[in-house]
């Protein structure tokens, strides 16, 4: 893909602020998967006043439910539709999450929260789970194992290809498609 900017997660504030919507980047480092049921579980625990089994501060969340690993590190692992997580996302960002990875558009509330918290939303190549599988170095279940593919996995990725979807200034590549 020619000369592409390389970035690493967890992010420094300086790095987040330097990203521009529409830019292609290669991400290396640690990301946490969480999709519908993991979000629901986090909010149920908070509602009950219970402690979360993970620290979200500074983390990157990837909306993904991989296929079973078999004898590999992980199975196919592309992004799922981000919009379904919109109702949860402003609070997730308020808890300290710095970056989100998924596919598709986000709500205005999410965009404003990204701006307020100086965070970032990335889109990953959608429907390319086998390709992205090759970019994952290690994988382990962090919590909510009972949720199966919807458990929270900690992934270490290397050169995971992304496009900056919404940057910390609130610029959105999909504003023309809303």
């Amino acid at each position: 893909m020619g000369k592409i900017k390389r970035i690493s997660s967890p992010f420094s504030e300086k790095e987040i602020i330097s990203l521009k919507a529409g830019e292609m980047v290669l991400l290396s480092g640690i990301i946490l998967t969480a999709r519908d049921q993991a979000h629901k579980r986090i909010f149920e625990l908070i509602a009950k006043g219970e402690a979360l089994p993970l620290d979200l501060q500074g983390q990157t969340i990837y909306y993904c439910g991989p296929t079973p690993p078999g004898n590999r590190v992980i199975g196919s692992c592309g992004p799922t539709t981000s919009g379904r997580m919109d109702p949860f996302t402003p609070e997730i960002l308020a808890m300290g999450v710095k970056a989100l990875i998924g596919k598709g558009r986000r709500s205005e509330d999410v965009l404003q929260a990204i701006k307020k918290e100086k965070a970032s939303y990335f889109v990953a190549p959608a429907g390319a789970g086998a390709y992205l599988q090759k970019k994952v170095i290690s994988s382990k279940v962090l919590c909510f194992r009972d949720l199966g593919p919807e458990a929270i996995y900690e992934l270490e990725v290397k050169d995971f290809p992304l496009v900056v979807g919404i940057d910390a200034k609130g610029k959105d590549i999909y504003s023309r498609l809303k």
Binding site: C64, G65, P66, T67, G75, S76, C77, G78, T80, G127, A128, G129, A130, Q133, P149
Partner: peptide
């Protein structure tokens, strides 16, 4: 080639 799912949403 690897017998992997084309997409994780099988």
């Amino acid at each position: 080639k690897d017998g992997l799912p084309i997409c994780q949403d099988t």
